[in-house]
Amino acid sequence: MNMEPATGKRPRTTVRSRGRRTSIADRISDLPDVILGEIISLLSIKDAARTQALASRWRHLWRTASLNLDFRGLPANHNGVLLDIILAAHEGLVHRLCLPARYLSDQAAAMEAWIQSPALDKLQELDFYLLGLPNTCVDLQSPPASIFRFSSTLRVATISMCSLLDYPVETLRFPQLRKFALVAVNISEDSLCHVINTCCPALECLLLRTNFNVHGVRINSPTLKSVGIHASVAELTIENAPSLERLLCLKMHMKMRVSVVSAPRLETLGYISHHEWGSKIMYGSTVIEGLCVDSLTTMVRTVKILAIHMNSNLDMTIVLGYYKGFQAQVDFVTFFVLNARSLESIQLVVDSRNYSREFVSGQREKLQIEKRASRGPNNKLVVQIVQCLLNVYIGKH
């Protein structure tokens, strides 16, 4: 594509300043065609088409620009017809395609024709979006095999409201896929683990939401940086994820167990909630059950953000075992001291070998307890540093 600015006379805008008329050159139109085409490709389909009205030079750019083709940007009564016309007449390619997930079953023939269009040969983003989540997987159909013809070029994909069978999944490979979401999909555990750990060697972001027939998920990925899960999964195990930075269980169902074996770069973990009775997050020797943390000795080495979900009106107590006064532990507790307005008490359990009056005095100063008290009677907080000997509390200060 030509990188040089197009020659010829540029449109100019005339403005009035202090009684004088001043002509200003159209600098945007001076940009090379390749940059203007990139600008058009970032716009919605409606706004991209409107660029033809800017100046005569923009007309040929629209005809050949890579399109962001989102079904939601087309008039509701004629979106299917317009999509046919655009795919047939447009001279350029489509880099992003967003279609309603229900069309995988309701409009299977039309979907097949759209997907086979040459305009989609180098598709980079595919999104089958949902307007509402189904309650069961009974009516979910297998998608047409043609939706996987973009596997070599896709970088972002959302697959929703369908049933993925084992055989076609086992043959898939997405060498460039960076972001992948499975929403309300019926898929087996083996197939899901194959998708995550084998067929997406460049995968960085993964979202699992309301998927069916999956009891446990095991992740072994050298590239994954972010995992979000909102599904009825009983066990999630991060066996080996050297690049993982964020692990967010957006909805922990009852008795869900999350185990992190190896994730040396993990910085964000959660969320934990008092609502999810019986659910556990295990990170090395650290076990978090509900809002009870047995120990932070392993987790605080890397985790900087611990996401917590709770009722803002809840009167609560935090109990932190095996407290040694490390700076990471001090920072963690100080955050609650200064910011948790509904918090009534904090209890820090200290091993008898580390316990002394000097230790208690120094920790109370480091935790800025007096700063919290200075804010007034409505910010009253009781901080207890207790001595533990053979798991029996024998002192309070």
Rank of each mutant, 00 (worst) to 15 (best):
Y393S: 14
S151N: 08
Q107M: 09
H60Y: 08
H309E: 15
V185G: 01
I229E: 00
V386E: 13
A101W: 04
G278D: 06
I35H: 03
R59V: 15
A53S: 13
V169R: 08
G395P: 00
G362C: 03
R246M: 11
K255P: 01
I196M: 08
A6P: 02
F359N: 04
D106H: 08
D70S: 12
N79W: 15
F71K: 09
N211T: 14
R265A: 06
A184Y: 03
A373G: 05
F174W: 07
Y393K: 14
I35R: 00
S41V: 02
S160R: 02
L61W: 06
M299D: 05
M111D: 03
S105R: 13
S279W: 04
E267D: 08
A49G: 06
S66E: 11
E189I: 08
N197T: 06
L381S: 02
A181R: 10
G270H: 03
A145H: 10
H253Y: 15
P175I: 05
V81R: 15
A55T: 08
A108T: 06
A157V: 05
T210W: 15
A65K: 01
R21K: 12
I39V: 11
L248F: 09
R59Q: 11
I45M: 03
P168M: 04
I35N: 00
R372E: 07
I40N: 01
Y167N: 14
E189L: 02
V300E: 13
I308P: 02
L314G: 06
P377N: 05
G290E: 08
L224E: 02
A25I: 09
M252G: 09
T334E: 09
R59K: 10
Q176E: 10
D84M: 08
H275E: 14
F148S: 02
I369L: 14
H275T: 13
A340L: 06
N311A: 14
V185M: 03
D190E: 13
W62P: 00
Y129T: 04
T317R: 12
K251G: 08
L42Y: 10
V349F: 10
K225V: 10
C98M: 07
A113H: 04
I305R: 15
Q368M: 14
F335V: 01
C249V: 11
S142R: 08
R149A: 09
W114S: 00
V287P: 05
I305K: 15
L164Y: 05
R257H: 11
M282E: 11
N378V: 10
I147R: 09
E267M: 10
S152C: 08
N2M: 02
N220H: 10
V185L: 00
D139I: 02
R18T: 09
L140W: 01
A263H: 02
A184R: 03
L314N: 12
K225C: 14
Q52C: 15
V386W: 06
A65Y: 01
G80W: 10
A65I: 00
C162V: 04
D166L: 08
